[in-house]
Amino acid sequence: MWLAMIILVTGSTGQIGSELVPALREVYGKDRVIASGRNVAKLREIGEPYAELDVLRRDEIARVVKEYKVNVIVHLAAVLSAKGEQDPSLAWDINTNGTLNVFEVARENRLDMVVVPSSIAVYGPETPDNPGDITVMRPKTIYGISKVVTELLGEYYYLKYGLDVRGPRLPGVISWKTPPGGGTTDYAVEAFYEAVKRGEYTFWVRPDTRLPMIYMPDAIRAFMMLMRADNSALTVRFYNVQGMSFTAKELADTIARYIPGFKADFKPDPLRQRIADSWPKSIDDSKARRDWGWRPVWGLESMARDMIENLKKSLGKKG
């Protein structure tokens, strides 16, 4: 089935979408991957085919699905954790009602698959450390709550209607190609940008804050591998995937090895520190490893080296 995929990607101009769309086009062909979103200028940068689309408009989703004969939706449109706390109503609307719209259009048009990522934001202070795929989920952010709803809705549509909903449950995603998009773990991205641009950065978390992370190339691999996995091999609908786990201080020290004189300061922001403290320090991705062969390629050291090399090129810095 995967060779015949015609894929609609929502939220294509975000951090993940802007890199996943080109990766999908390389595998399935440019004309078989339709980028969509509300920012037409950014959609043009990603390239055709693209469709202006608001996930809160079910009729718009249905129109694009029928026009392009879509049989798979990769649903990325979402308001992330830190931004979600600034406007909980908007986050709830896009993250839950938008997702319900996607599921309903997929059901009504008998699509083959919906791939929608979840997040470690589904966890809360009561979650044990290094949690597996099925565990206590009592998040304290609207983003986390909405992602729990996403997972439960996905399982419901799979069990009730046979709609193949699946997705990776991602930790913090680090990338040099797209600026941070409002997530709590974005300090790990900003630190690299500011280190290359200014040689210093003020972290908004304590130096001992340890969180699971993944480098974008591994995140893209996780999407691609899970999309192509045989449904009969899947034992859950949402899978933990992790690349590495490190403290903010360990990140700062690693950056300093590649940018001598890098100055790191730590001034915890109460809101974002509280969110970070509610998440586990690492996650158990053994089911993804067992069921569809997941293995991360990138670690902290190799990721840091690659980030800095590429950011220097993209930002026009020498040395």
Rank of each mutant, 00 (worst) to 15 (best):
G167A: 14
F203N: 01
D186F: 06
V165W: 02
A219M: 12
V196Y: 14
P212E: 03
P207H: 07
A195H: 12
P217F: 15
L159Q: 15
P212Q: 06
L170E: 08
Y187Q: 06
R166K: 15
M216A: 11
Y215G: 05
D164K: 15
T178F: 10
V165E: 03
A219Y: 01
V173N: 06
W176D: 13
W204K: 08
Y187T: 04
G181K: 07
Y187H: 08
Y201Q: 05
L211T: 01
R166I: 15
P180Y: 09
M213N: 09
E190R: 12
M213K: 08
F192L: 08
R210C: 01
P217Y: 13
W176M: 10
Y187F: 12
V189H: 01
Y201L: 04
R210E: 08
G167P: 12
D186E: 03
E190G: 09
A191L: 00
P179E: 13
G162I: 09
A191K: 01
Y187V: 06
G172S: 01
L170S: 08
G172T: 00
T209Y: 01
L170I: 10
Y201T: 00
E200G: 03
G167E: 13
M216I: 12
T185D: 03
P171S: 04
V189L: 07
Y187D: 14
T209D: 01
G199A: 11
T184F: 05
P207T: 10
L211N: 01
T209E: 06
G181W: 04
G183E: 15
A219G: 02
L170P: 02
E190H: 09
I174H: 06
E200R: 13
